[in-house]
């Protein structure tokens, strides 16, 4: 935040265009660099949410998965709000499917 930014806010002027340029570039480059189409990204988002929802109760509507980039490194960032019960504890789920698969790998060994 610079003095100019504050002045612009006070005067309700438009944000300086250099900031807008920087933000738009960061977003568009994160996508350019991965070659992931929006469709694929959306499918991945849904599948990630499904996996996480098996373990904890999450807010499917609020969940967001996005690409962020810094120093030519692109990261997949998932923001998945976890529901809490009235006492404030995280709502977990019965992990029945996982247990059985673990048993299976053990018998295989």
């Amino acid at each position: 935040m610079t003095l100019r930014d504050i002045l612009n806010k006070l005067l309700r002027r438009q944000e300086a265009s250099a900031n807008t340029a920087r933000e738009r570039l960061q977003l568009v480059l994160a996508h350019d660099r991965t070659d992931l189409s929006p469709d694929l990204l959306d499918q991945m988002r849904r599948e990630i949410l499904e996996v996480v929802a098996k373990y904890v109760e999450i807010d499917i509507e609020e969940g967001a998965v996005s690409l962020e980039t810094e120093d030519r490194m692109t990261a997949l960032v998932a923001n998945l709000p976890i529901r809490r019960d009235p006492s404030g504890a995280i709502k977990t789920k019965e992990l029945t499917t996982i247990d059985s698969s673990e048993e299976q790998t053990q018998t295989n060994n």
Partner: peptide
């Protein structure tokens, strides 16, 4: 233009392109 924050600065560009 950079001083007016109406042009990407040198640091902006080197940071973005690394």
């Amino acid at each position: 233009m950079i001083a007016n924050q109406e042009m990407l600065s040198v640091d902006d560009v080197t940071d973005i392109l690394a």
